[in-house]
């Protein structure tokens, strides 16, 4: 069931983004920033965790989950220690993704050649 939900929710988020892209003639940078901020805002209402439980990767993969993870980790760290936790804990959940992206991008750039 969660597989179907992943497909549907993931697809739906992408569909909404595509519609905004085409109707408002925005660039990829604009749409990604919008969705990251939306993911962060949804976290305020604790909605994103429910979406993750429902759709799994369908909610984890879109870039909105990046905003949600950053906010979630920042709040958790702030609640568990003190307000400084907002800064110290913000990358707790997303560090693996960013580190992997940096490492793999570097490797690919060393090994491959742009094809145009």
């Amino acid at each position: 069931m969660i597989f179907l939900n992943a497909f549907l929710i993931g697809g739906l988020i992408c569909l909404i983004a595509q519609l905004i892209l085409d109707c408002f003639k925005l660039l990829p940078a604009h749409i990604v920033v919008i969705f990251v901020v939306l993911g962060s805002i949804f976290e305020a209402f604790h909605l994103y965790d429910k979406l993750v439980d429902f759709a799994g990767a369908g909610a984890l993969l879109p870039i909105s989950s990046f905003g949600h993870s950053l906010t979630h980790a920042a709040v958790d760290a702030a609640v568990n220690s003190n307000y400084l936790g907002i800064f110290t804990g913000i990358f707790d959940l997303t560090s693996s993704g960013i580190a992997a992206a940096i490492f793999f991008s570097f490797l690919i750039a060393l090994v491959c050649k742009p094809r145009g």
């Binding site: 892209l21 660039l27 990829p28 742009p114 094809r115 145009g116």
Partner: peptide
Amino acid sequence: HNSTSERQFRYPTEYGGQ
């Protein structure tokens, strides 16, 4: 040249933007 132009004015040549 398609690639010098793309990378200067728009995006890297392997970028997946539509």
